[in-house]
Simulated scan of single mutants.
Amino acid sequence: MRNSINRGRDLNNLISTPFINLYWYKIRELGDEQILKCYTLLNPEEINRADRYLKVEDKVRFIVGRGMLRKIISYYTSIENNDLIFEQNNFGKLYIKDVNLEFNVSHSGDYVVIAASYDNPLGVDIEKNNVCIEVEDIAEEFLTNDEISFLTDISNIAEKRKFYYKYWVRKEAVVKAIGQGLSFPLKDIVIPLDFIIGVFEKISIKKETWYIRDILLEKDYSCSIVARNKTQLRVIKGDI
């Protein structure tokens, strides 16, 4: 990974400081050899899962996401890849037993993103903005009344869709961070409407303080990260 993992094993300075590192990978920039590298890092169960995908793009996103997650965790923890065993909580969130590393993965369209940090529960979500979706038809499923009112007042269709996806990924990142998935009602998550882009904003979830921040990777994508503790965020283009 450029400027990080691939420069030897000098990771102590990289990961012992209170940073959140967010690695991103753009699928279309990867060659067959790089994707094969990721594939060789998977265990037999993950290989079977990858091979069950019907669409090539879904298969590649999974291979890159899981392969690079394994590589990152291995470097962070000094656990050999073959010895890594993923556990899941009751809602499907992955973790490594007896390790204080927090991590989360998301992928959509052309991107895979992986967030990692020590002792700082987190969640990340990315979505490619779908121009075909009628956002008002499904907004009531997860937006609060104030958010729906704000969405309704937006006259420009593109801006309306942009608002929808921004709030979708913000709330998805929240439920991934708290480890409850979609079992936690998205309508119960309140995100400030005067959200400031590029900084961590404080939010309250289940009477606990969390921090949320948007990440700009590309115009047609929405991406957000949520963490229990406010700290510095480093966005890193990952190398394979």
Rank of each mutant, 00 (worst) to 15 (best):
M1N: 06
R7K: 12
D10A: 11
N12F: 11
P18K: 04
F19D: 14
I20A: 05
Y23R: 04
W24E: 00
W24D: 03
E33I: 15
C38E: 06
T40W: 09
N48I: 07
R52I: 01
D58Q: 12
K59E: 06
F62N: 10
M68F: 06
M68S: 07
Y75K: 14
Y75S: 13
N81Y: 08
N82I: 10
Q88W: 00
N89S: 00
K93N: 11
K93L: 02
K93V: 02
L94S: 10
K97F: 11
V99C: 06
V105M: 08
S106G: 04
H107Y: 13
H107S: 01
S108V: 09
Y111L: 03
V112C: 04
V113T: 07
P121R: 15
P121N: 13
E127P: 11
N130G: 04
V131G: 09
C132F: 15
V135H: 12
I138K: 01
L143Y: 09
L143W: 09
N145S: 11
E147A: 05
L151W: 02
E159Q: 15
R161D: 07
K162M: 12
K162C: 11
F163I: 11
Y167P: 06
V174P: 08
V175F: 06
V175T: 13
Q180L: 11
K187V: 13
P192S: 14
P192F: 14
L193E: 08
F195E: 08
V199Q: 15
D214Y: 12
Y221K: 09
V226I: 07
V226D: 04
R228H: 08
L233I: 13
L233W: 02
V235P: 01
D239C: 03
